[in-house]
Design a protein around this nucleic acid. Structure first.
Lengths: 341, 341
DNA sequence: ACCGTTCCCGGGAACGATCCCATAAAAATC
DNA sequence: GATTTTTATGGGATCGTTCCCGGGAACGGT
């Protein structure tokens, strides 16, 4: 009664068998008479037996745990990735333990330590905005724990990674703005130590140049993902002698705020300023005007990263690869000028 | 080299001690000479020894894992709760395994089974919208696994739970709308099998009645949290002979969509219809008009639920309690009529 | 000098499974 | 019918800890 759990031994005793035989019968190994197997499985079913994962894992020298390190859970992009990861990981019979770096390199380092102490069988990481080098992951490689970076990846280490096509996405978004007649397009870039942000910046620059427009450094600002800086950036843009007539923002949340402030300042979107966001977050469709954005398939990203990780877990020799997930430009009204007179 | 981890045995051998002594030295039990303890801890440090959690847990008959069952990770309310839970759980040296019911009673049942098979030390649950009875949790009680429900709780079982003050929140929101001059207030209610939704509905009804207004059943619709039904509900409201002049919505996302459709239909918010949402989700502040809403402290909710769970884990005899977290009405422009002429 | 405590430490049995090895019984081979 | 082979099972070590128990050394009190 007292939380007494059924063990393999209980089954063995009731059936006058040895624990070895019961174990074999249950794990569908060979060397068991069909009859006894039936007996065992039936009794197991009846007693509602479930193997103790702790014992199994100790024997197998596996924790069946995947460690996940992300900047922030509440960030929709990451919670979506998490959902994707969770799906794959659960199907494999593994569990996830999560930790957030909270965008701090210090806690990220601590997280890595914790994961190692927890003996995770694999690690899924998206870097904090502060992370410059990848030294704190060297220890992980030493323990031969497979590791896959996603979205905010690292390029120093020879590990697998999965990213979205930031360069193309950015290029297409800016190209779209230009096609809508924008001549002075601003870009809110992310911290440049992260590759994906650098790629986006490059996409932006190339789109500007390839279309024969002037690349004005004054139109590029760097965000550090803080909410309260959006207002400052917007004010800055509007205060310029030649303010931008198009903005490619770092994410939807930022874009939505910009629209808010721009409208408040008496300008129209997309009339005076056309805007494109990033990530296709919730409700972008229902604001005024509906937000054009880049749909980044976070769920897909999570799934791919997890699958890649299991590839590495199942096959130690698997060479590191880089997978790129295609995003899609979603055009709504915040960037649609052609319809206007 | 080959992933060889340092064990207690390695330390024992190098120091010519028994594993028992090393274990005692490390676990700060008594019966160890200060000198040897120093020796042991120093060598442990040097070798970067970390106890194998699997072995420890097997011996302790604990998994150090908390199971979490929520409807959807991507739902911001739940990802916020998760963040709160994660904070407390990590501090206690436990890990979380997550599973989503995806609002389906079938997968919720399966999730419970999985959690039990995983031998979680405690369970944190927020019910799916389909869950009527709590029979599938009886098994959990049998294993004497502590369980705490949060937000979408169950009242049949004698378990601890933590909820927000849905009744008061709802009452205050509706009362606020009435004070703004609304006479016909609609309510988008949630599935009535969940207590919190019933409480909100009661709060709504009482606020209407206590203010001497007519309680019109036609103004109450039931949402099932599906996105595409918002449009239908809005159209329905607008098509009424006497359409509502105020709406208390099920959540912000729904409220934002309603604003969108109402404006599109040529009505003004809050002029023709004042709107209050629920949850204080992201970006509600920046839409047009900024959304009034009920700030439900999801993070706090998660923390409290986790702490309550650990109370039960640490003390088997702890009686079940119900904790209520206070929400706060956030008034923005979507419900502010008094400022208008 | 003897006994009782206290202090340290080692031996070894757990925890619940897996799995190698041995062995008995059954079956197949000559 | 004696042998090898196959088949089915049990014994017991093992994973890395913890912890009970027992014993030797040191110490103090009578």
């Amino acid at each position: 009664m007292k939380g007494k759990r059924v063990t393999i031994k209980d089954i063995a005793e009731q059936l006058n068998l040895s624990t070895s035989t019961v174990s074999r019968a249950l794990t569908s190994h060979s060397d068991v008479k069909a009859e006894t197997r039936k007996l065992v499985t039936e009794l197991a079913e009846e007693l509602d037996y479930h193997p103790d994962p702790l014992a199994v894992n100790l024997k197998q020298r596996k924790t069946k745990i995947i460690g996940l390190i992300i900047p922030k859970i509440v960030n929709r992009f990451f919670s979506k990735s998490l959902a994707g990861i969770q799906e794959v990981v659960n199907r494999e019979g593994y569990n996830i333990i999560i930790s957030q770096s909270d965008e701090s390199i210090r806690t990220e380092k601590k997280n890595v330590e914790d994961m190692l102490a927890n003996r995770v069988d694999g690690l899924l990481v998206s870097l904090s905005k502060e992370t410059m080098s990848a030294d704190h992951f060297l220890k992980v490689l030493n323990t031969e724990t497979p590791i896959v970076f996603f979205d905010r990846v690292n390029e120093e280490l020879e590990t697998s990674r999965v990213i979205i096509d930031d360069y193309e996405a950015s290029y297409k978004a800016v190209d779209h703005l230009i096609k809508q007649g924008c001549k002075r397009i601003a870009h809110v870039a992310g911290p440049p130590n992260l590759v994906n942000n650098r790629n986006r910046l490059e996409g932006y620059k190339d789109a500007i140049r390839n279309n024969g427009l002037f690349l004005d450094k004054k139109l590029i600002v760097f965000s550090s993902y803080e909410n309260d800086e959006v207002k400052i950036h917007t004010k800055y843009f509007l205060s310029l002698k030649h303010p931008p007539d198009g903005i490619f923002a770092i994410n939807d949340s930022s874009a939505i705020q910009m629209i808010h402030y721009i409208k408040k300042a008496g300008f129209s979107v997309p009339g005076d300023v056309a805007i494109v966001g990033f990530n296709n977050e919730a409700n972008g469709e229902f604001i005024d005007p509906p937000l054009s954005t880049v749909d980044s398939p976070a769920l897909q990203l999570g799934k791919s990263a997890a699958r890649l990780l299991f590839d590495h877990i199942d096959n130690e020799e698997r060479p590191a690869t880089c997978e790129i997930i295609k995003s899609k430009l979603v055009i709504r009204e915040s960037s649609l000028r052609s319809k206007l007179t």
